[in-house]
């Protein structure tokens, strides 16, 4: 897929002297779901702010669909919808009025049928004439998505879309995002929830201390950096790992009742067959076994820890 967003050498230093972004280079492909992961203060919101025109970059160049975000800001911004992290709404307005306002602000002529479609899709139609202040947190979050979609954007930024929402609503949000992607919308989301990225993203970017430390296809990332473990429940406890098994990456736990073998998923051979043979030779037997695979969260934590 061709790149729809291209960020080159982007840096941002705030007036306070704090450098939020350092020489960021990033490409987002047309039609993908890109998850930007990073701890608090990593620079995720600043990066989104720079692309959407809310934050003035200190250096660098950003193009969207080949157009410069400064020189050609009208064309660029018309393509982008932004759902901010904070629940910023006009509390005295109604969903109907505020979504129509957003559409007008982005230069689109009134289209009540389309606004109705968006509100219905986000299950807000019944509340269209209620004051926003009376809506629940989840409804307000959906309303922000409706506002961002009001002008039919091709690219949607979701800054922590499920922060502070319950599990059911989170799954509802994921469903909405999937539907949008199916309609051809490119989606960039930032999240604290690794589970969210693991569930939805095509590609993952990890940002820490203002630097992109990794951008990778999610599946490839998990394959490359993921570790697998074979856990063996021993028939009889061991006091130490027998000398004949010293060549393996083994860990003895659970008071000597559990032997864990960590192996590389990329290796041509896992070494499991050899290990089991050597265990038999050493007189070590087991009553049960299971395997575990490291999650994206484990990979993320390892990456960020290395950065520190």
């Amino acid at each position: 897929m061709p790149a729809v967003i291209r960020v080159e050498g982007l840096s941002k230093t705030y007036a306070s002297g704090f450098t939020a972004l350092k020489d960021i280079n990033l490409e987002i492909s047309q039609g993908e779901i890109f998850a930007l992961l990073g701890p608090n203060g990593a620079g995720k919101t600043t990066l989104i702010g720079c692309i959407c025109g809310i934050v003035n970059p200190t250096a660098g160049k950003i193009t969207v669909d080949g157009k410069d975000i400064v020189a050609d800001y009208r064309a660029v911004r018309a393509m982008i919808g932004l759902v901010p992290q904070e629940l910023a709404t006009d509390m005295f307005e109604t969903p109907w009025a505020t979504v129509n306002f957003s559409r007008g602000l982005f230069g689109k002529p009134q289209n009540h049928a389309y606004v109705e479609k968006v509100l219905r899709a986000l299950t807000l139609w019944e509340k269209k004439d209620s004051r926003i202040m009376t809506l629940s947190g989840g409804m307000k979050r959906r309303l922000l998505i409706a506002k961002a979609l009001a002008h039919e954007p091709r690219i949607l930024f979701l800054d922590e879309p499920t922060a502070g929402v319950d599990v059911e609503l989170r799954r509802e949000m994921w469903e909405i995002v999937r539907k949008l992607r199916a309609e051809g919308v490119t989606i960039i989301l930032t999240t604290h929830y690794i589970e969210e990225a693991e569930e939805m993203a095509d590609r993952v970017g990890v940002i820490a201390k203002g630097e992109i430390i990794l951008v990778e296809e999610k599946n490839e990332l998990m394959r490359k950096l993921g570790k697998k473990q074979l856990v063996l429940q021993l028939s009889a406890p061991l006091t130490e790992i027998p000398a004949g098994l010293g060549a393996y990456d083994l860990h003895l736990g659970a008071d000597g009742n559990e032997l864990t073998y960590t192996y590389d998923t990329r290796a041509e051979r896992t070494g499991i067959t050899a290990l089991l043979n050597d265990m038999r030779a050493a007189g070590v037997t087991f009553k049960d076994l299971s395997t575990m695979q490291s999650s994206l969260e484990d990979i993320f934590v390892d990456l960020v820890r290395e950065k520190r």
Binding site: I54, A88, T89, L105, F106, G107
Partner: peptide, 12 residues
Amino acid sequence: TGTIYEHLSAPV
């Protein structure tokens, strides 16, 4: 209220 983000990110 924070809704100014919309004005700043709009093609206006």
